[in-house]
Design a protein around this nucleic acid. Structure first.
Lengths: 181, 181
DNA sequence: CATTGTCTGTTTACACCGTATACATGGCCA
DNA sequence: TGGCCATGTATACGGTGTAAACAGACAATG
């Protein structure tokens, strides 16, 4: 009974893999089975199922942040903002179950536009419209999150062009001074 | 063993009541128990749990439509649109578990901006910006749905004023001609 | 009236789930 | 050497969704 090399990570790996494969909410027992370990073993590393899913969400947000960062690489502030928005929706569509799990798990889900995973988006908005418009970041966040959620849960067909169009419209509205109304 | 008067409706009533009380995903057995009936009885009225939740979602969308309609009562097109948006978010915050269930259940969830539950919103957008801007309705829908989802799943604190501000900004952007970019 | 469905609900049973409890085993440090 | 602690196991309990077989009430039909 030599201790496995990082059962904790192995479990999270399998959890992510199952989510990527379309499984909704991998369970403790299924994960243990996949890792070739007894049903109770995971409890040595996670207090309960919620804690495990929370850790999965944490990994998901790390992947998410990487995707947003990659999209923020070059171009004007406006171009970068739009690119981030497209990346946001693309990530959700590419990893639907993971994205759902990330936000379904109440703990660990970010509560502010400036939470780590979204600070990069918020920063870009601030660079574009100024720090003095706190609603602007919320608006951009809501737009991309709304599009992503509708695409996932509503099955709304979505093209990158539409994401771009909506975001550009919103930015145009900010520039036109509509956000203080 | 006289047939109960509409066990189907009784089950749905209890399901909605449980959701309103904060229960996440009432189960077949719990519902049967609440209705004072055996665990298998619900299967005479619903093929499986998904079908039951789908019926619950249907009821939820009816309530939702009523809320949106009530908000569409008076004012200019812009005012009505914004009022609908506020009502959208308010509904989600007032019935969080029901709102989640409505969109979690893949079947029955509307897939287009002009699905019955949202036709009223889409119509208002069209009245405001013209029929020739199909992205506008999607954008408004995404904004209010995103705000609602963030408020629910992310715990983002949200005030009606913010909803209004974001929607007005977006409308300003449409008027400024930004949506065709 | 008797018979035969059909509709509705019950009972029983199975496999799965999360998890509490008690136990075994190995590595590390004193 | 001895004991501790971390890790994994075995067993058990109550919950779930649901398949299968059964029972009573009602309507239609002979």
């Amino acid at each position: 009974m030599v201790p496995l090399a990082g059962l904790r990570d192995t479990l999270l790996d399998h959890a992510i893999a199952m989510l990527e494969a379309g499984e909704a909410e991998p369970g403790i027992r299924a994960l243990a089975r996949a890792a070739g370990v007894s049903a109770m073993a995971p409890y040595r590393h996670f207090a309960d199922k919620a804690a495990l899913l929370s850790a999965v969400a944490e990994r998901g947000f790390a992947m998410f942040l990487a995707a947003l960062s990659a999209a923020d690489a070059e171009g004007s502030d406006a171009e970068r903002l739009v690119a981030q928005g497209v990346a946001y929706v693309d990530f959700a569509c590419a990893h639907p179950a993971l994205f759902r799990a990330m936000f379904a798990c109440g703990a660990g889900a970010p509560k502010q536009p400036d939470a780590p995973a979204f600070a990069i988006l918020t920063r870009r908005v601030a660079a574009l419209v100024g720090e003095d418009d706190p609603v602007a970041a919320l608006g951009c966040w809501a737009i991309v999150h709304g599009l992503a959620t509708l695409a996932l849960n509503g099955g709304v067909p979505l093209a990158a062009a539409q994401v771009r169009a909506v975001l550009r419209t919103y930015v145009a509205g900010i520039v036109a001074g509509g956000s203080t109304g």
